[in-house]
Design a protein around this nucleic acid. Structure first.
Length: 429
RNA sequence: GUGGAUGUAGCUCAGUUUGGCAGAGCACCAGGUUGUGGCCCUGGCCGUCGCGGGUUCAAAUCCCGUCAUCCACCCCA
């Protein structure tokens, strides 16, 4: 066997049954819930001009500097496969002008980052995200957090935690960096090598260092918010008040850091303990992105679907097995004439909403019955020369083994009644 | 970019320490029933032991290289 010929690009994956059924279920729930909050779908291209991302995310962020798939088109323009969804949506909204004000959009689709793959991290991965455009308003931020809670509960998730923090306003950033630096500097020698580097390059990043020695130093640092202006702190206070009013189980985590430059004010992360090192189920926040001369304000989140599927499989271990598609009826034929007749019968049943399967070859009756059983069918319709001549069919209930011979139209009527289109799939969780 | 682990049948994996016929379970196919599934019994199919080189009478096993996958750092969804 050739090891590479049949493999996708490293970090990219084929997604097929049975797991894809779980994905479909999660997407169905999302498409049901999004309209309840006024969001409609937006589908933007996977490929954009590179500046769409470099300007929105920030030239110095890791995503832009190390992780983007960037290529040149035939005219030499630089294109990039989207590493996240917000920048493209804002690019769209900017083109809509004033009509985009207050827009509420959601997206689902593949994103691309050229990182080393590991648990919960693919190079092509999938995000479900929303963007609610409009001036900063703590109520909008809380609404979007509530939407995520609603969505994740509909997915049967139980064990997630919601951490909230503030990034402050752009003007607060120098004060925050200087304040943290002053507090850290006396203990610089106690920090790990990575954190000594972060002290110069990106001081906020020390706050979520995983090293035990660093954590002790970090725990004693003042909150970021103490270095921020009064309006920034008031905004966070209002978010906290509204979260409590909705009884959302969020907690303020002053050490929460998020990497992209466009965030202002509220940021949050929802984590799940079953996910391994990459434990963020979703992340989001309020942002301000400049396109042309204009600022675009909004609030949104992105949830990683690969991670969501992992978490659902942890919290709802029986789900995947329970959503297998069933072909409740198997058509069994003896001989070529019966097989032709079954092909016609299958078409009639299917057009009337009854899922059925049949053997297209000339396998033995025994083999066809075995296949019917394996497919989980509740019914087998068996026809050979005798039944064809009589305009009849044997209908066998595979659960109790009872078999009766009926006229063909009675068999069809009975099957439509038992398995027809009004049948609903069992509700999750 | 850095570190660790793992690659053997369609799947899950033994076998590698100490070189000696390529294995098990599951799955699949057939028979046990002239036209009847599940359970059981019998038989069958399935292999470039990731790939390339080296050592050896002999390599899945030891050595070198290489590719891939997984996990972790980093970063993030």
């Amino acid at each position: 066997m050739d090891t590479t010929l049949f493999q996708p690009i490293p970090g990219m994956a084929d997604l097929a049954a049975p797991e894809v059924l779980l994905w479909q279920r999660l997407e169905e729930q999302a498409r049901r819930i999004m309209p309840l909050y006024g969001f409609t779908e937006i589908r933007t291209p996977a490929l954009e001009y590179t500046p769409v991302f470099t300007r929105a995310l920030g030239e110095t962020t890791d995503v832009v500097q190390k992780e983007m798939y960037t290529l040149a088109d035939r005219g030499g323009r630089s294109l990039t496969l989207r590493p996240e969804g917000t920048a493209g949506v804002i690019r769209y909204a900017a083109g809509q002008g004033a009509a985009a004000d207050g827009a509420r959009l959601y997206y689902v689709g593949p994103m691309f980052r050229c990182e080393r793959p590991q648990a919960g991290r693919k190079r092509q991965f999938h995000q479900l995200g929303v963007e609610a455009l409009g001036e900063p308003n703590p109520a909008a931020d809380v609404e979007v957090i509530a939407l995520q809670q609603h969505l994740f509960q509909s997915w049967g998730l139980r064990d997630f935690t919601i951490d909230v923090n503030t990034r402050g306003l752009p003007d607060d950033r120098p004060a925050v960096a200087q304040g943290l630096a002053a507090a850290v500097r006396p203990q610089l020698d106690a920090l790990c090598a990575d954190c000594r580097r972060r002290f110069d390059t990106n001081i906020l990043r020390l706050l979520d260092c995983k090293q035990e020695s660093c954590r002790q130093v970090i725990a004693a640092l003042p909150d970021m918010a103490t270095f921020m202006s009064a309006p920034a702190r008031a905004y966070l206070d209002e978010v906290v008040r509204l979260l409590a009013q909705l009884h959302l189980p969020a907690r303020v985590n002053p050490r929460l850091v998020r990497g992209l430059d466009y965030y202002i004010h509220t940021v949050w992360e929802i984590r799940h303990p079953a996910l391994g090192a990459q434990d963020a189920l979703s992340g989001g926040g309020r942002y301000r992105i400049t396109q042309g001369e204009k600022n675009f304000d909004g609030v949104g989140f992105a949830a990683g679907l690969e991670r969501a599927v992992m978490a659902v499989q942890h919290d709802q271990p029986g789900w995947l097995a329970a959503i297998q598609p069933d072909a409740p009826v198997s058509l069994v034929a003896l001989g070529a004439a019966a097989r032709d007749a079954n092909l016609q019968l299958a078409q009639e049943l299917r057009q009337r909403g009854c899922a059925c399967g049949l053997d297209l070859g000339d396998r033995s009756l025994k083999a066809q019955m075995r296949a019917a059983n394996r497919a989980g069918s509740a019914w087998a319709v068996i026809r050979g020369e005798r039944e064809l001549a009589a305009g009849a069919a044997a209908l066998k209930d595979l659960r109790d083994g009872q078999q009766t011979e009926l006229k063909l139209e009675d068999v069809v009527a009975k099957l439509i009644a038992a398995t027809g289109p009004t049948r609903v799939a069992p509700a999750p969780g």
